[in-house]
């Protein structure tokens, strides 16, 4: 949740409850709704890492609320995250997060995001093809593994195109 929170704060400072409702608004029913406790824990950790800083705002007739805002370090971290193509185990989630939040981050346009991700996929596919070419012909397990990976990659690319159609 770190990066989505950073992205949300990139637009304007906000306090915990605001961030929680923003998250719910952005991702709707598809994502499990985070509880306020998790939000506060993450914010504290971010502050500890120097990516955000907080301020207490005095309110009349109410308890003070803590408003968080992005530090320059935080901004850099956010930019770095956006610029790199998503990779790793939850590749899809990560990328989708970026796509969904990009109007807020204002860092880059969605088409470029998609293109970057697509190139990455293509490179992966190329690598898999090489693997398949050099694979042991007599080993069906290895062949199947590679083929499975290729099919997944194709599915991801198709999904990428759907995103392109819908969001751009």
């Amino acid at each position: 949740m770190r990066l989505p929170l950073l992205a949300l704060l990139a637009k304007e400072p906000a306090h915990g409850y605001e961030l929680k409702s923003l998250l719910e608004q952005t991702f709707g029913q598809a994502y499990p709704s985070p509880n306020i406790g998790q939000v506060y824990v993450t914010l504290q950790r971010l502050e500890r890492d120097g990516l955000v800083r907080s301020q207490d705002v005095v309110q009349a007739a109410r308890p003070n609320k803590r408003v968080y805002e992005l530090t320059p370090t935080g901004r850099d971290a956010l930019a770095a995250w956006v610029e790199e193509p998503s990779d790793g185990p939850r590749i899809r989630d990560d990328f989708f997060m970026k796509l969904a939040l990009s109007p807020l981050t204002g860092a880059t346009d969605q088409m470029a995001l998609i293109n970057r991700q697509r190139r990455h996929y293509l490179g992966l596919m190329r690598g898999l093809s090489r693997l398949a070419a050099g694979a042991d012909r007599g080993n069906p397990i290895s062949k199947l593994l590679i083929e499975g990976a290729m099919l997944h990659l194709q599915a991801d690319l198709d999904w990428l195109e759907r995103c392109q159609e819908e969001l751009v």
Partner: peptide
């Protein structure tokens, strides 16, 4: 990053 969701703290 294996096994963790991006939304996990």
């Amino acid at each position: 990053g294996a096994g963790r969701s991006s939304l996990d703290p």
